[in-house]
């Protein structure tokens, strides 16, 4: 138990936790959107994120990005990375919906069948990116060649530097970018769901699918929309992850996905703002816990939080439901 470190550097740990939690929150949105509309845990969403990181790796390699480019180029690379990751992740999410979930929905399959299918899809994606792609793309992406199922490094786009210091808390430029971009993405999504015509359709289907259908909302289109939106958010998370940590691996999605799911449940699954809150809280608690005990217990903390939340407050901090999200 390392209380001194925790109390002495509480500001630093909070900042670290927030910048970690912002990425969880972005991924959590994907779970929350799909759950809010379909009451379905999209287990394969973690792999949507994983595909995003590989898309970033691919496009940066194709552009010949080197370590620490000048600032103008860096911004350009980040923007291109975001667009490509969003397309890749959104496309993957949409493909999963069309190929795996839609046939099951038509048969009115029980929830467990969906879950098992999702696990299968997730396994397929993990293996395709771990095994097939290193062989196929080995020449195009040298850092992946011969590294089946291993960690692949990426160029550093922005060197971590301390931007400003408050007390003994150092805040780096990368942390600021991560948190600010995550907040912007979430504000955009919140606006989209609450203020636009399409968003109204999403909320309507979430509240009552049958009535929404009677009112002329095209359910299938809404379902496609939420998968794509969740995918785009995962793509953004993938870009921020690549920028912050500079590595990826085919199995990266598993633990991150579980944590993002925990974040979604913590905030109240189906609730967009809950996902943000849950992600940030989880990130901070995790860093606190890792400081208190030791970083090797970090993953256990998230699972224990998940179990405790589900036992005592299964609707999460802000309550479930996309339809009735405080709009």
């Amino acid at each position: 138990m390392n209380f001194d470190d925790l109390i002495g550097h509480i500001g630093q740990h909070t900042v670290d936790g927030l910048s970690k939690g912002a990425i969880y929150a972005l991924i959590a949105l994907g779970y929350t959107l799909v759950y809010g509309v379909l009451r379905l845990i999209n287990f394969a969403h973690s792999e949507v994120f994983m595909v995003g990181t590989f898309a970033v790796l691919g496009v940066w390699t194709a552009l010949g990005v080197e370590n620490n480019p000048p600032i103008g180029q860096a911004i350009l690379f980040l923007l291109i990375g975001f667009v490509v990751a969003a397309i890749a992740s959104g496309g993957t999410a949409l493909a999963i919906e069309r190929i795996a979930y839609r046939p099951l929905r038509r048969k009115n399959a029980p929830p467990l069948i969906f879950l098992i299918t999702a696990i299968g899809v997730s396994l397929i994606l993990v293996e395709v990116f771990g095994l097939l792609l290193p062989d196929l793309l080995g020449k195009a992406i040298p850092s992946m060649f011969g590294r089946a199922r291993q960690i692949v490094g990426m160029p550093t786009i922005i060197q971590q530097e301390t931007l400003f210091t408050i007390g003994n808390t150092q805040i780096t430029n990368v942390q600021v970018i991560v948190v600010v971009s995550a907040l912007v993405m979430m504000a955009l999504l919140d606006w989209f769901i609450n203020k636009t015509r399409y968003g109204r359709g999403v909320r309507a289907v979430a509240q009552n699918p049958e009535t929404a259908a009677l009112m002329g909302v095209n359910q299938e289109r809404v379902i496609m929309l939420i998968f794509v939106l969740g995918g785009i958010m995962a793509g953004a998370a993938a870009l921020l992850w690549s920028m912050r940590f500079g590595i990826t691996q085919n199995s990266i999605g598993f633990v991150l996905g579980l944590k993002a799911f925990t974040a979604a449940v913590l905030g109240g699954i189906g609730n967009l703002r809950g996902a943000l809150l849950g992600g940030l809280v989880l990130g901070v608690v995790e860093v606190y816990g890792a400081t208190l005990f030791s970083s090797q217990w970090e993953d256990v903390i998230a699972f224990v939080i998940l179990i405790v939340i589900l036992m005592f407050r299964p609707t999460g901090l802000l309550g479930e439901s996309l339809g009735r999200a405080r709009a």
Binding site: L40, I41, F43, P111, L112, L115, L258, F261, V265, Q296, W297, D299, V300, A302, F303, V304, L306, I307, L310, M311, P314
Partner: peptide
């Protein structure tokens, strides 16, 4: 955990498996 809905149960048990390994 058995009071939870089916799909929550699946995720929680998955966490349990990981906890044992860790």
């Amino acid at each position: 955990t058995l009071r939870l809905r089916g799909d929550y149960l699946a995720i929680v048990t998955m966490g349990f498996g990981e906890i044992i390994r860790i």
